[in-house]
Design a protein around this nucleic acid. Sequence first.
DNA 1: GTCCTATATAGGACTTTTCAAGTATGAGTT
DNA 2: AACTCATACTTGAAAAGTCCTATATAGGAC
Lengths: 179, 179
Amino acid sequence: MKLRYAVLGLLSLEPHSGYDLGRAFAGSVAHFWYADQSQIYRLLDDLDAEGAITTEVVRQNGRPDRRVHSLTETGRHELDDWLRSPLDVQRPKNAFLARLFFAGSLGPDHIRRILDEAEQLVTDSREQLRTIEHSATTLDEVIQNATLQFGLSHAETTLTWIAETREAVASFERGTPDD
Amino acid sequence: MKLRYAVLGLLSLEPHSGYDLGRAFAGSVAHFWYADQSQIYRLLDDLDAEGAITTEVVRQNGRPDRRVHSLTETGRHELDDWLRSPLDVQRPKNAFLARLFFAGSLGPDHIRRILDEAEQLVTDSREQLRTIEHSATTLDEVIQNATLQFGLSHAETTLTWIAETREAVASFERGTPDD
DNA sequence: GTCCTATATAGGACTTTTCAAGTATGAGTT
DNA sequence: AACTCATACTTGAAAAGTCCTATATAGGAC
C-alpha cells in the first residue's frame, strides 16, 4: 500500500485537498508515482477514519468547497516508520520494453517504428519534467530536486540507448551483428 | 492487461508451462515484467478457454506432469495486434524515489542510509542482469539483448546518480548548496 | 527418518488499481 | 440561453495483483 505513504508524504510537506493530490500525481510527483482520483478520495476517507489525517472544510468564493487534509501526529509517525523501514526489491513493469522484447517477428521496420514512438514519448516526458520548478535551498528541496534529476538522467539514458538500439538493428540488417 | 501480452509473447518464442513462465518472470524477463505464480496459472486457464493457447500434458519421469502451452493462430493474432498498437504513456511507480522524496525531515544521515540501501539493491540487480545469457545472431536476440542493455544502462545511470545525490547532500551540509 | 529444496499446479481471500459515470459550482464564451 | 472549461468530490463495478495455503513427486542433506 505505497499510495498511502505517498499521500502521507505529500501531506507532510503541506496540507492538500484530494484535488490537489490528484494534480500532484499528475504533475510534480508523476515521475515516481501515479494514482487515480477515485483511489485518492477513498484513501483519504480511510486515513481520516483511522486518525492519520484531519480534514478541514475550506469555503471558497466562486468554487466548490475544498476539503483540506493535514497530517496528524499518528500519520506523521506512520510516515516516519515507513521512511525508516527497509527498501524492498523493485519489480519493474515496463510495457515498452515488453513490446520491444517480443517484436522481433514483425521485422526491423516495425522495431524502428516502436523505437521512434518511444523516443517521442521519452522526449515529451523529459520536457514535462523540465517544467517542474526546482530550487535547492532546503534539504527537502535538495532531495526533491534529486528525484527530478533521476528522471532527467534516465530519460537521457533512454534516448542514448534508443540510438544504440537502432544502430544494433541496422547493423544486424547489414549482416554484421554486433554483440 | 499487459501480463496477458507478456505471456502470449513468451509463448510466441517457445512453448512454456506455467512453471516455466514463473521462472521467466523471476529471471530472464524480470527486468521489465513480473507476475505472481497464482496470477500466471489463472491467466493460462483464461487464455486456454478463449482459444488463444493450447495445452498439452507432458509426462515426466520422477516429476509431476507439465502442462505445456503453445500459442494458437488466434493468440498469435492477438499478440500481433498488441505489438502494432500505439504505446501508451508509462506511469512509473518507484517506491525508492517516493521514499527519498519525503525523507528530508529525517535528516542527511538518514538520506545517506537510503542511498546506501538503494546502491546495494541496484548493484545486486545489475549482477542478476549480467547472469542472463545473451547473444545476437538473430533479430529476436538482437532486441532481447537490447532490453537487457536497457536494464544495465539504467543501473549504471542510477549508480552515477546516487553518487551525485550523495554529493548534493554533502554540499548542502557544507552550506554550499548547488542547484 | 526427517528436513529442505525444487518441480509443478490450484484456489481462497484479499487488497489495490483502473475505468466509467455522475454530482455540483461558477466563470467565461459564443 | 446554452456551451464549455476548471474546480472539487463521489460511487459502482470490474480488473489486476498479492499473499497464503494446499496438493503431489522426488532428490539430496543431516
